[in-house]
Design a protein around this nucleic acid. Structure first.
Length: 226
DNA sequence: AAGCAGTGCAACCGCGAAGCC
DNA sequence: CGGCTTCGCGGTTGCACTGCT
Protein backbone atom coordinates (compact mmCIF):
# COMPACT_ATOMS: atom_id res chain seq x y z
CA UNK A 1 0.00 0.00 0.00
CA UNK A 2 1.40 3.29 -1.06
CA UNK A 3 1.54 5.78 1.70
CA UNK A 4 -0.30 9.02 1.08
CA UNK A 5 1.76 12.03 0.17
CA UNK A 6 0.26 14.09 2.95
CA UNK A 7 -0.38 11.97 5.97
CA UNK A 8 0.28 14.63 8.52
CA UNK A 9 -2.64 15.62 10.62
CA UNK A 10 -1.78 19.30 10.73
CA UNK A 11 -1.72 19.74 7.00
CA UNK A 12 -4.24 22.16 5.58
CA UNK A 13 -6.48 21.02 2.80
CA UNK A 14 -9.03 22.62 0.56
CA UNK A 15 -9.18 26.20 -0.60
CA UNK A 16 -6.14 28.37 -0.15
CA UNK A 17 -6.37 31.50 1.96
CA UNK A 18 -4.95 34.83 0.90
CA UNK A 19 -2.31 34.55 3.60
CA UNK A 20 -1.19 31.18 2.29
CA UNK A 21 -1.04 32.54 -1.24
CA UNK A 22 1.10 35.43 -0.11
CA UNK A 23 3.46 33.20 1.82
CA UNK A 24 3.89 30.96 -1.18
CA UNK A 25 4.40 33.84 -3.60
CA UNK A 26 6.86 35.56 -1.30
CA UNK A 27 8.87 32.42 -0.90
CA UNK A 28 9.02 31.64 -4.60
CA UNK A 29 9.85 35.25 -5.44
CA UNK A 30 12.90 35.12 -3.24
CA UNK A 31 13.97 31.50 -3.60
CA UNK A 32 12.53 30.47 -6.92
CA UNK A 33 10.57 27.38 -7.87
CA UNK A 34 11.62 23.88 -7.11
CA UNK A 35 12.18 21.47 -4.26
CA UNK A 36 8.49 21.32 -3.54
CA UNK A 37 9.02 18.75 -0.84
CA UNK A 38 10.83 21.14 1.43
CA UNK A 39 9.19 24.34 0.26
CA UNK A 40 6.12 24.26 2.54
CA UNK A 41 8.18 23.99 5.69
CA UNK A 42 10.62 26.63 4.55
CA UNK A 43 7.80 28.94 3.56
CA UNK A 44 5.90 28.32 6.77
CA UNK A 45 2.97 26.67 5.08
CA UNK A 46 0.95 23.79 6.46
CA UNK A 47 0.50 22.30 3.04
CA UNK A 48 2.10 19.42 1.23
CA UNK A 49 4.57 20.23 -1.51
CA UNK A 50 2.28 18.86 -4.12
CA UNK A 51 -0.45 21.22 -3.10
CA UNK A 52 1.95 24.18 -3.18
CA UNK A 53 3.18 23.26 -6.62
CA UNK A 54 -0.34 22.98 -7.95
CA UNK A 55 -1.39 26.27 -6.43
CA UNK A 56 1.61 28.03 -7.90
CA UNK A 57 1.34 26.52 -11.36
CA UNK A 58 -2.40 26.83 -11.73
CA UNK A 59 -3.11 30.05 -9.98
CA UNK A 60 -0.28 32.15 -8.64
CA UNK A 61 2.25 32.19 -11.45
CA UNK A 62 2.54 35.76 -12.72
CA UNK A 63 2.36 34.83 -16.40
CA UNK A 64 -1.01 33.16 -16.14
CA UNK A 65 -3.65 34.48 -18.45
CA UNK A 66 -7.03 34.35 -16.82
CA UNK A 67 -10.47 34.74 -18.29
CA UNK A 68 -12.32 33.29 -21.21
CA UNK A 69 -10.62 31.38 -23.96
CA UNK A 70 -10.48 33.18 -27.28
CA UNK A 71 -11.84 31.50 -30.38
CA UNK A 72 -8.38 30.88 -31.74
CA UNK A 73 -7.31 29.32 -28.48
CA UNK A 74 -10.32 27.07 -28.59
CA UNK A 75 -9.55 26.08 -32.16
CA UNK A 76 -6.00 25.31 -31.24
CA UNK A 77 -7.09 23.15 -28.34
CA UNK A 78 -9.32 21.13 -30.63
CA UNK A 79 -6.57 20.69 -33.16
CA UNK A 80 -4.02 19.72 -30.60
CA UNK A 81 -6.40 17.40 -28.84
CA UNK A 82 -7.06 15.60 -32.09
CA UNK A 83 -3.35 15.07 -32.42
CA UNK A 84 -2.20 14.57 -28.89
CA UNK A 85 -5.23 13.28 -27.03
CA UNK A 86 -5.59 14.07 -23.36
CA UNK A 87 -2.06 15.27 -22.95
CA UNK A 88 -3.08 18.50 -21.38
CA UNK A 89 0.35 19.66 -20.37
CA UNK A 90 1.52 19.46 -23.96
CA UNK A 91 -1.57 21.22 -25.21
CA UNK A 92 -1.24 23.89 -22.56
CA UNK A 93 2.36 24.31 -23.56
CA UNK A 94 1.20 25.64 -26.91
CA UNK A 95 -1.15 28.12 -25.30
CA UNK A 96 0.80 30.89 -23.65
CA UNK A 97 -0.50 31.74 -20.21
CA UNK A 98 -2.79 28.75 -19.97
CA UNK A 99 -2.31 25.87 -17.58
CA UNK A 100 -2.94 22.22 -18.17
CA UNK A 101 -5.63 22.24 -15.51
CA UNK A 102 -7.36 25.16 -17.13
CA UNK A 103 -7.24 23.60 -20.58
CA UNK A 104 -8.47 20.30 -19.20
CA UNK A 105 -11.35 21.98 -17.39
CA UNK A 106 -12.25 24.00 -20.44
CA UNK A 107 -12.19 20.94 -22.61
CA UNK A 108 -14.37 18.92 -20.25
CA UNK A 109 -16.85 21.66 -19.52
CA UNK A 110 -17.14 23.44 -22.85
CA UNK A 111 -15.55 21.87 -25.88
CA UNK A 112 -16.31 18.29 -25.08
CA UNK A 113 -19.96 19.05 -24.56
CA UNK A 114 -20.13 21.09 -27.72
CA UNK A 115 -18.61 18.33 -29.79
CA UNK A 116 -20.95 15.75 -28.35
CA UNK A 117 -23.98 17.91 -29.06
CA UNK A 118 -22.80 18.16 -32.64
CA UNK A 119 -22.44 14.44 -32.98
CA UNK A 120 -18.71 14.38 -32.83
CA UNK A 121 -17.00 11.92 -30.60
CA UNK A 122 -14.65 14.06 -28.53
CA UNK A 123 -12.38 11.11 -27.95
CA UNK A 124 -11.45 10.53 -31.53
CA UNK A 125 -12.86 13.59 -33.31
CA UNK A 126 -14.99 11.51 -35.57
CA UNK A 127 -18.66 11.70 -36.29
CA UNK A 128 -20.91 9.42 -34.36
CA UNK A 129 -23.51 7.59 -36.37
CA UNK A 130 -26.34 7.92 -33.95
CA UNK A 131 -26.02 11.37 -32.53
CA UNK A 132 -27.58 14.19 -34.51
CA UNK A 133 -25.49 16.11 -36.95
CA UNK A 134 -25.51 19.85 -37.11
CA UNK A 135 -27.67 21.23 -39.80
CA UNK A 136 -26.39 23.25 -42.73
CA UNK A 137 -22.90 22.02 -42.16
CA UNK A 138 -20.98 20.37 -44.89
CA UNK A 139 -19.87 17.21 -43.27
CA UNK A 140 -16.29 16.84 -44.09
CA UNK A 141 -15.41 13.40 -45.37
CA UNK A 142 -12.22 13.76 -43.50
CA UNK A 143 -13.60 12.39 -40.32
CA UNK A 144 -15.34 9.48 -41.87
CA UNK A 145 -13.09 8.76 -44.74
CA UNK A 146 -12.87 5.11 -43.83
CA UNK A 147 -16.56 4.90 -43.27
CA UNK A 148 -15.88 3.19 -40.00
CA UNK A 149 -16.50 4.51 -36.58
CA UNK A 150 -14.07 4.10 -33.82
CA UNK A 151 -15.19 1.27 -31.64
CA UNK A 152 -13.06 1.74 -28.63
CA UNK A 153 -14.28 5.00 -27.20
CA UNK A 154 -14.73 3.31 -23.87
CA UNK A 155 -11.12 2.39 -23.72
CA UNK A 156 -9.75 3.58 -20.40
CA UNK A 157 -7.35 6.37 -21.05
CA UNK A 158 -5.03 5.21 -18.32
CA UNK A 159 -4.04 2.30 -20.44
CA UNK A 160 -2.91 4.42 -23.30
CA UNK A 161 0.70 4.11 -23.96
CA UNK A 162 2.60 7.22 -24.71
CA UNK A 163 1.70 7.09 -28.32
CA UNK A 164 -1.49 5.15 -28.13
CA UNK A 165 -3.67 8.18 -27.90
CA UNK A 166 -1.75 9.75 -30.65
CA UNK A 167 -2.13 6.75 -32.84
CA UNK A 168 -5.81 6.87 -32.10
CA UNK A 169 -5.95 10.18 -33.84
CA UNK A 170 -3.46 8.89 -36.29
CA UNK A 171 -5.71 6.01 -37.13
CA UNK A 172 -7.72 8.51 -39.11
CA UNK A 173 -4.72 8.73 -41.32
CA UNK A 174 -4.17 5.06 -41.62
CA UNK A 175 -7.78 4.50 -42.50
CA UNK A 176 -8.02 7.10 -45.11
CA UNK A 177 -7.53 6.67 -48.77
CA UNK A 178 -4.85 8.73 -50.39
CA UNK A 179 -6.06 12.06 -51.54
CA UNK A 180 -9.32 11.85 -49.66
CA UNK A 181 -8.48 15.15 -48.04
CA UNK A 182 -5.63 17.51 -47.61
CA UNK A 183 -5.10 17.19 -43.92
CA UNK A 184 -1.51 16.90 -42.99
CA UNK A 185 -1.13 15.63 -39.48
CA UNK A 186 2.57 15.28 -39.65
CA UNK A 187 3.96 17.21 -36.75
CA UNK A 188 7.40 17.83 -38.01
CA UNK A 189 8.04 21.39 -39.05
CA UNK A 190 10.99 21.09 -41.32
CA UNK A 191 10.50 18.25 -43.74
CA UNK A 192 7.08 16.78 -44.26
CA UNK A 193 7.40 13.11 -43.65
CA UNK A 194 5.60 10.64 -45.87
CA UNK A 195 5.19 8.28 -42.95
CA UNK A 196 2.04 8.34 -40.89
CA UNK A 197 4.04 9.12 -37.81
CA UNK A 198 2.34 11.95 -36.05
CA UNK A 199 4.55 13.08 -33.30
CA UNK A 200 8.22 13.21 -33.20
CA UNK A 201 9.53 13.19 -29.70
CA UNK A 202 12.28 15.66 -29.12
CA UNK A 203 13.90 15.05 -25.83
CA UNK A 204 11.78 15.09 -22.73
CA UNK A 205 8.36 16.45 -23.40
CA UNK A 206 9.08 18.54 -26.38
CA UNK A 207 7.11 17.92 -29.49
CA UNK A 208 7.50 19.29 -32.91
CA UNK A 209 4.24 20.37 -34.38
CA UNK A 210 3.55 20.94 -37.97
CA UNK A 211 3.07 24.44 -39.18
CA UNK A 212 -0.39 23.39 -40.14
CA UNK A 213 -1.46 22.95 -36.58
CA UNK A 214 -0.40 26.40 -35.63
CA UNK A 215 -1.19 28.20 -38.79
CA UNK A 216 -4.91 28.30 -38.27
CA UNK A 217 -5.60 26.47 -41.48
CA UNK A 218 -8.87 24.60 -41.54
CA UNK A 219 -8.94 21.48 -39.44
CA UNK A 220 -11.50 18.74 -39.92
CA UNK A 221 -13.17 18.85 -36.55
CA UNK A 222 -13.46 22.58 -36.85
CA UNK A 223 -15.34 22.28 -40.08
CA UNK A 224 -18.08 20.68 -38.09
CA UNK A 225 -17.56 22.80 -35.09
CA UNK A 226 -18.26 26.13 -36.64
C1' DA B 1 -38.31 33.33 -2.28
C1' DA B 2 -36.95 28.64 -1.99
C1' DG B 3 -35.46 24.45 -3.84
C1' DC B 4 -33.25 22.00 -7.33
C1' DA B 5 -30.30 20.89 -11.20
C1' DG B 6 -26.63 22.09 -14.04
C1' DT B 7 -22.15 24.17 -14.62
C1' DG B 8 -17.42 25.80 -13.78
C1' DC B 9 -13.34 25.55 -11.51
C1' DA B 10 -9.97 24.80 -7.77
C1' DA B 11 -7.95 21.25 -5.52
C1' DC B 12 -6.98 16.40 -4.43
C1' DC B 13 -5.52 11.67 -5.53
C1' DG B 14 -3.00 8.06 -7.54
C1' DC B 15 0.14 6.58 -10.86
C1' DG B 16 4.21 6.55 -13.72
C1' DA B 17 8.55 8.72 -15.00
C1' DA B 18 12.76 10.66 -13.83
C1' DG B 19 16.51 11.33 -10.89
C1' DC B 20 19.49 10.06 -7.24
C1' DC B 21 22.18 7.07 -4.33
C1' DC C 1 21.28 -2.50 -11.39
C1' DG C 2 17.77 -1.91 -8.03
C1' DG C 3 15.41 0.60 -4.58
C1' DC C 4 13.86 4.92 -2.93
C1' DT C 5 12.39 9.69 -3.38
C1' DT C 6 10.57 13.43 -5.81
C1' DC C 7 8.15 15.47 -9.49
C1' DG C 8 4.69 15.99 -13.02
C1' DC C 9 0.58 14.53 -15.21
C1' DG C 10 -4.19 13.15 -15.97
C1' DG C 11 -8.47 11.78 -13.86
C1' DT C 12 -11.70 12.78 -10.46
C1' DT C 13 -14.05 15.11 -6.78
C1' DG C 14 -16.34 18.61 -4.21
C1' DC C 15 -18.03 23.00 -3.61
C1' DA C 16 -19.63 27.53 -4.97
C1' DC C 17 -22.22 29.84 -8.21
C1' DT C 18 -26.01 30.45 -11.56
C1' DG C 19 -30.22 29.76 -13.80
C1' DC C 20 -34.57 27.61 -13.96
C1' DT C 21 -38.96 26.11 -12.02
Amino acid sequence: MRKPCCDKQDMNKGAWTKQEDEKLMDYIRTHGEGCWRTLPKAAGLHRCGKSCRLRWINYLRPDIKRGNFAQDEEDLIIKLHALLGNRWSLIAGRLPGRTDNEVKNYWNSHIRRKLISMGIDPNNHRLNQITPRPQNQSISPVLTSSGSMNKDTSKPTKNFGDNDRISDAASCLEDEKPGSHDLNLDLTIAIPSPSPLIVEKKGQNELKLTEEVESGRPFPTLHLFR
